[in-house]
Design a binder for these strands. Structure first.
Lengths: 203, 203
DNA sequence: TTCGACATACCAACCAGTTGGTATGCAGAT
DNA sequence: ATCTGCATACCAACTGGTTGGTATGTCGAA
């Protein structure tokens, strides 16, 4: 019943996944050792391999875990209730800007980070990252499609391509946040994304 | 003077750097071993540590090497001679699209890849990546400034932020190219970047 | 003979994964 | 209620292969 604070106290598997999310976003997948994760979770290796049959297996599960967390965050956000689909898209971007706080590893995308690293070496992880990113984009594409039908049905671009573009800008902004050691540069970059969206959907 | 294509035959240091560029872009910095690089270069470890005092040292040199290569490519491209700065910017994007061919590791950015991975663990490499990316962006910013002065001097955004944005879109498009296993998706993403630039600089 | 360029052989640290074990909980039989 | 049997959860210690790095040697050019 008694629980320490930093090391969260839910079941061991969740603790390992939370730890993995944090550590992998800091050091990358290859550079994080199983021991790193165990230490961060306050558990031992035996426990780790009780829940995950390999490090790659953990990678896949961590991608899932991250996607679930993101789903919760964006699925329940206030901007989702706005009537105009363009407002929802801008609300999404604004929320992403608002999130840019605290340590870098707290707002960057585990899926993008792992994709970069494992695309040749761990196909299972790559596939998981691709699938979860596609699902996340899928939600955006719903709003994009609606907005396009409403404000520019004759536009030359497809909703899917714009969803990808939005996500690409985000991923790119994370890289520069890492390079510069802070989120300020990402805010500037997302400013252009926001402007582009407003220009596309002239009301 | 005569050089084979894959394994080139120039001096050992260059061969090691070329090999590092290729292998690191495939497997990431942490996952590539010194032996990997030596094997790809057709040399041995003794030679490696003759030229680089550590793996991190190689990372810094590889970033430099990559930046030099990029400088050569973009510095001498035809679009640089165009009179209108907007044409030069669009020419830059078009060249980046044209480059999206062959294996993924041949067109992705070593600097972006390494930044993601080493931002907490190898400050020297991170600093090198940041510096070279900033220099590359600096070239873009010249054209952006000129274009802004010419076509939209009252715009609310700064040339620097647009340079970063362009580069962020590129970096993001590489991530998706890796996730999807091909460059097609990057072409779609860059299409939006191109449209944004044309909208910004209405002529 | 000396020096730079490279090779060979080797080491200590590290790392993913294994082994063998203990503690605890639970289900059903008695 | 209590005992038995078995599964789950977790741990400490170990292993075999790998990795960054070193020590030493060879060879050709100056």
């Amino acid at each position: 019943m008694s629980k320490t604070l930093a090391e969260n106290t839910s079941d061991a598997r969740s603790r390992l996944l939370d730890a993995a999310m944090t550590v992998i976003r800091q050091k990358g997948f290859s550079a994080t050792t199983v021991d790193d994760i165990c230490q961060a979770a306050g558990l031992t290796k035996g426990s780790f391999f009780h829940y995950f049959k390999s490090k790659q297996d953990l990678g896949v599960a961590a991608a899932q875990h991250f996607a679930d967390m993101a789903d919760g965050l964006f699925g329940s956000a206030d901007y989702r209730k706005l009537a105009d689909p363009v407002d929802r898209l801008l609300g999404y971007v604004d929320l992403r800007v608002a999130i840019l706080q605290g340590p870098i590893s707290s707002f960057t995308c585990l899926l993008g980070t792992m994709t970069q690293e494992v695309y040749k070496s761990h196909p299972a992880i790559l596939a998981a990252c691709d699938r979860h990113m596609a699902e996340h984009i899928g939600e955006l594409v719903k709003d994009i499609t609606e907005a396009r039908d409403l404000y520019c049905p004759d536009a030359l671009w497809t909703p899917d391509s714009l969803g990808l573009h939005i996500q690409a800008v985000l991923q790119g902004s994370f890289i520069f946040a890492k390079a510069r050691g802070g989120p300020e540069v990402a805010v500037e970059i997302l400013g252009h994304l926001r402007r582009y969206l407003k220009m596309l959907f002239k009301r």
